[in-house]
Structures are given as structure tokens and as C-alpha cells.
Design a protein around this nucleic acid. Structure first.
Length: 566
RNA sequence: CGGGGCGUAGCGCAGCCUGGUUAGCGCGCCUGCCUUGGGAGCAGGAGGUCGGAAGUUCGAAUCUUCUCGCCCCGACCA
């Protein structure tokens, strides 16, 4: 590749439209250009990165026994009607009519299409297991696209779907994909974690998210620095609290706490710490109020509550809803005598002689105890994990860190195969729905995440395996025949070895070339300038470490090849 | 959908409040000279429906209304 001939429109200044670093840098480096909100064109270097990622993905998917297909992007709405998702998916599904008036939509995902394909063509357990994948542009009409490729409306995704004869086989398929995903992100040269995730409304039994670690990530994850434990906030748990042993119960007393409603106000007034207060929060669970007991210094994780109660919707009740449900203003609500369904976070169970609302305006109880003053029937881990908590596996202090979701794998079970009547005949000749799994990787998002994780003030810093090119050769004097010949020689030698190399043969001043090389983030830079004429020396510089090596011209090729070896 | 902001040359911006010749600046781009190891210098030049429409006015980038687009925060989200 010759810089002079390529479309690499680098910008000196940050475009006003970009906020996050990957977006800014991709625009500045001429990797992408926006066509419309959330919709981007990939220029040659941007495309080169995508191809690198895709190549790794293909190799690992193939190695895991998956087969590549390419499914339609335009899909008949009928199929979505059949699966029940036409309504459920909502406005994110872009719909339109073709010239015959047939309802169609742009595929945001392909469970329906793949299930249709398989139900029409696979009929026997002998054909299983089957895993099909594709790499394709998806369209989701996001409410608010943002951050460039991080949350586009149109984006490139690898999606795979597995079909198995039973749950055990499906688990094996899932594990294969989990392994393949580890290999993929490992090979991309990214720092990542696989975290246990909430499987959401899809209702699968199991799910992992693959998160690229980056300070600018949108998601918070909980990781253990000592062992392999990692989970997202919605799923993360911690060491259970110690059991309550032989508590010395004191007498419960009602105390006046006029105007003290917030935890901070009540505890200050009573002269106790927040961990000695149990707050009673009212949640609207599918429209009905439920009381949730929680230690004063803890927060409810709504997804945990939702899953525990097997609800569809969980929302903190408004003050009015609280009053309507209990007849007491929020702030004084308590578990004694309350007539709502009551659930408690498990941390509450290890407390004794704590303060609670008295279910009477301007009053609290102190020295309350569960089992004596009120009963708790249902207990679960319902709270948000913090850095003060300990790893549920090994007990080490947990850490919170930020990440970008680049992959998600699900065990789907038979939700889609049942809805679409996708069945095969098992060994006993009985019709059985396929047990499915689905596995996604946001290919274009991986590119953005790689930049979020690897950049500095000068530009991108690509990990070698997914760099658009491995080496950039700076010919500092394209008009100088001797220098140009020396640059060409190495350029050709690298090309013969199959190395992706870009030669900057532009008639620009050296400063521009150095700046652009840094901006593009190409792992290795070879500079050939007047030092070559004077001393026969060329310079090799590593983008990531800034380490530079002065080498004689005839050693440069071998040296570069050496650095390119893993 | 709610809140906020922005649309002026390829990019970044000023001008608008307080209407008045030919709409500016920096970068980029073209030509020439000069220069060549971290975005040089000089000279000359091209490039604008001031997002669009309607209105007010003798006169609109500037005021009014409508409209389109983009960005940020929120709700939402594999």
C-alpha cells in the first residue's frame, strides 16, 4: 500500500461531532466517515481492521466446528410475527413495505431466519449438533446512537446459532463457543474478561458477556483480582454475610424521629451507623407494591430483584405509590405489621438490634429484630455489589472496573424452536424441538473497543494482530533516489513475505509523516532519511513502547521480521 | 420521547445580542519559490444556496415562525 495512492484523509483537529476517543481517532485517522446518525462508511484502513478481526473470528469459529453462512438482511415480517417478536422488539426493528405491500424489516438479529432455515432442512438427530454463523451488517434503529462505532445503528456483527438434540449437548456447544471466544479476544491482543451476565428477557439459563477492559467503557463489571470470578453488576454477588449467632436481643422501642426520613438523617439523629439501620423500600413489581428490606448503606440491584420475583418489570415506587400502598409517608415505612409481600436482602439476616421505620409518621423503632418483631419469609442477594465486598469464590476484595461489551453468548433453550416449530426426530423417532444457543460478536465494536483500550495523546496504538497494517515505512525524502530505493527495497521484501505494509511516499515534510504514523497507530515504523545517506542507518520504532532501534539498512528487514514474530 | 446545545468553505471556529458595501480567521487544498528527522517560511490562488422554507424590513448570516439535520444528558438497549 502506498500512502500517496490511498484514501487516508487524516485530520489535524478533532471533529466537533465526536466525544469519545475511539470515535475521534477513527475520524481523525481517516478510518471512518459518518453518512448519517449511527451510520458510517469504512475507509480502506478502517476496513482493513475489520478484515483482520473477521479473519480471526472465522478461523476460530471454523476451528470450533461452526459453518459459515450468509443470511438475508431483509426479512419478512411474517417470520417475526410467528416468533412473537414483531411486537416485542419494538421500534428498534426497522419496518417497511416492499412494492407489493408486504411487511418487511431489516434484520437486527437472525434467530428467526436461522431457525426457519434449519427447520426446513434439518430433520434428524443424526444431523446434530449443528452450528451456523455469519458475519454481516445488522441494523437496529437505536433510540440514541452514539460514540461512533460503539453504538451505531448499522454495525457489523458475527452471529452464530447452535442446534442440539438435548440440553446436555447444548451445554457442550455453549462451552465450545465460550472457549472459541476466549481464543478470539486473546488473539486480537485485547485485555478482556468473560463475565457472568443476566440472560435477560430471552430467558436462557446461562449467559456470558465478553468485556474489553477500558476506563471509558459503558458497563461496570465486578472482577476478582485473585481468581477467575467476574460478573456484571446485574449478576455479581459476593461472600454471604456471617450467620447471626446468639444475639443478645434488646427490647424494641419506638422513638420519635420528627422529619427524619432519609437514611443519613435518621442515623445521624439516632447516633448509629447506616449499617445498623434497615430500610424498607417499596418497589412496584408488575404494577403491585412489594416491600424490600435492605441495610441502610446498601442499594437494591433492580435486575436481581426482578429475577428473584420472576417479574417483567420492577420500578422504585414514587412517594405517592408508597403512601397509597402503606398509608405511611416514605421514610417511616417498616416491616412490623406491614401488609405487603416482603422480601429481604440476605445481609439483613445477619443484623440484630437494628433501627427500622415504625409505619407511623415521625417514628422509628430501635433494637428491632427479625424473627421476633417481624418475620422474613423470602431472602436473596438483592443488592448492588461494591468494592467493600469479597469474592464469592475466593474471598479476595472485589474490584469494580469498566468494560465494553464486545461479545455475548446465550443458551437459548427451546424458546425459538418451539415458537417456530423447529423440530427433528430423535433416536426414538419422536418429534423434538432443537435446543438452541446464540453467540454474538460486535466486530465493528471490537475495533472501537481496541482503540478505547489502546491509545495515547498522539493517536491509536493497534495490537499487532488487528492493526490495519503491521509496518509503516516513512520515506522522508521521496525525491531522493538513494533514499527512495532503500525504502522500496524493504517495502518489497516485506510484501514478498506477506507482511501488511504501508509506505509513506508522500511529498510531505517529515513532521507530518511522523504525526500521521503515530495517529494511525501502526505497530512498527521504519524511518529512512538522511541518516541513511550519511551512515547507512535506518530507524525502527515500536508504536506501543516508543522504543527505537538504529539499524544498518541491510539488517532492517530481518530485524522487522523478528519483531513481527509473536 | 423529555431536557440542553449546534448548523457559516474539506476540518475547526468568529461574526448574530445591537440588521447596512465585496461574509472573515486558522488549518487543509492548488501554483511557484524555498525548505526537509516531529504538523516550516514567503508569494499568489481556488473554494460559501451562511442547513432549508416562509415572514418582518428599503435591506437578513444577523430579527420572527416553521422545518430538516447533527451532538450531548436522560428514559431505553444484544
Amino acid at each position: 500500500m502506498r500512502f500517496r495512492e490511498m484514501l487516508i484523509p487524516t485530520l489535524r483537529e478533532n471533529p466537533a461531532e465526536a466525544e469519545v476517543v475511539s470515535h475521534k481517532l477513527m475520524l481523525r485517522a481517516g478510518f471512518i466517515r459518518k453518512l448519517s446518525s449511527g451510520i458510517y462508511s469504512y475507509l480502506p484502513l478502517g476496513l482493513a481492521v475489520l478484515r483482520k478481526i473477521e479473519h480471526i473470528v472465522r478461523q476460530e469459529m471454523d476451528a470450533a466446528g461452526a459453518q459459515e453462512v450468509l443470511l438475508p438482511m431483509v426479512q419478512p415480517a411474517d417470520l417475526w410475527e410467528e416468533s412473537g417478536r414483531l411486537k416485542k422488539y419494538g421500534p428498534e426493528l426497522l419496518r417497511f413495505r416492499d412494492r407489493h405491500g408486504r411487511e418487511s424489516c431489516l434484520g437486527p438479529t437472525h434467530e428467526e431466519v436461522i431457525t426457519d432455515l434449519v427447520r426446513n432442512n434439518v430433520h434428524s438427530y443424526r444431523s446434530l449438533p449443528l452450528n451456523l454463523y455469519q458475519i454481516q451488517t445488522k441494523f437496529r434503529d437505536e433510540i440514541r446512537p452514539r460514540f461512533g462505532l460503539m453504538r451505531g445503528r448499522e454495525f457489523i456483527m458475527k452471529d452464530a446459532y447452535s442446534f442440539d438434540s438435548d440440553d446436555e449437548a447444548a451445554s457442550a456447544s455453549y462451552e465450545k463457543m465460550r472457549y472459541a471466544y476466549h481464543r478470539i479476544f486473546e488473539r486480537c491482543g485485547l485485555k478482556f474478561r468473560a463475565v457472568e451476565a443476566d440472560s435477560g428477557t430471552i430467558g436462557g439459563s446461562f449467559s456470558h458477556e465478553f468485556m474489553v477492559l477500558a476506563a471509558t467503557g459503558e458497563d461496570t463489571l465486578v472482577i476478582c483480582p485473585k481468581c477467575s470470578y467476574a460478573a456484571n453488576m446485574e449478576k455479581a454477588t459476593c461472600m454471604p454475610p456471617p450467620a447471626l449467632e446468639n444475639p443478645a436481643f434488646r427490647t424494641m422501642e419506638k422513638v420519635s424521629t420528627p422529619g427524619k426520613r432519609k437514611v443519613a438523617a435518621v442515623t445521624e439523629f439516632l447516633g448509629i451507623s447506616a449499617s445498623q439501620l434497615v430500610k424498607t423500600m417499596i418497589f412496584m413489581v408488575d404494577g403491585r407494591p412489594v416491600a424490600v428490606l435492605l441495610r441502610g448503606d446498601h442499594e437494591v440491584q433492580p435486575v436481581k430483584l426482578k429475577n428473584f420475583l420472576r417479574a417483567d418489570e420492577v420500578e422504585l415506587a414514587s412517594d405517592q405509590e408508597c403512601f397509597d400502598a402503606v398509608g405511611v409517608p416514605s421514610g417511616y415505612i417498616g416491616p412490623v405489621g406491614i401488609e405487603l409481600p416482603l422480601v429481604a436482602d440476605r445481609e439483613v439476616m445477619s443484623l440484630s438490634n437494628f433501627a427500622i421505620g415504625a409505619n407511623e409518621k415521625n417514628y422509628h423503632f430501635v433494637n428491632a429484630n427479625h424473627g421476633r418483631d417481624f418475620e422474613i419469609a423470602r431472602v436473596a442477594d438483592l443488592r448492588v455489589i461494591t468494592e467493600n465486598d469479597r469474592c464469592p469464590q475466593c474471598g479476595a476484595a472485589l474490584q469494580l472496573t469498566r468494560g465494553i461489551e464486545v461479545g455475548h453468548i446465550f443458551k437459548l433453550g427451546t424458546a425459538y424452536s418451539k415458537a417456530l416449530h423447529a423440530v427433528f426426530l430423535n433416536e426414538e423417532g419422536r418429534e423434538t424441538p432443537f435446543v438452541m444457543g446464540c453467540y454474538g460478536i460486535g466486530v465493528s465494536r471490537v475495533a472501537a473497543a481496541a482503540i478505547e483500550q489502546n491509545h495515547d495523546k498522539d493517536g491509536m496504538i493497534w495490537p499487532l494482530p488487528i492493526a490495519p497494517v503491521a509496518v509503516i515505512i516513512l520515506n522522508l525524502s521521496p525525491k531522493d533516489e538513494e533514499i527512495s530505493r532503500a525504502a522500496e527495497e524493504i517495502y518489497q521484501a516485506l510484501r514478498c513475505e506477506g507482511v501488511d505494509v504501508l509506505i509513506d511516499d508522500r511529498d510531505e515534510r517529515p513532521g507530518s509523516k511522523f504525526k500521521d504514523a503515530d495517529l494511525l497507530g501502526i505497530p512498527l515504523r521504519l524511518t529512512i532519511g538522511k541518516r541513511f545517506v550519511k551512515e547507512g542507518i535506518v530507524e525502527i520504532r515500536q508504536r506501543q513502547t516508543s522504543k527505537t532501534l538504529d539499524v544498518p539498512h541491510d539488517k532492517a528487514f530481518a530485524q522487522l521480521m523478528n519483531l513481527l514474530r509473536p
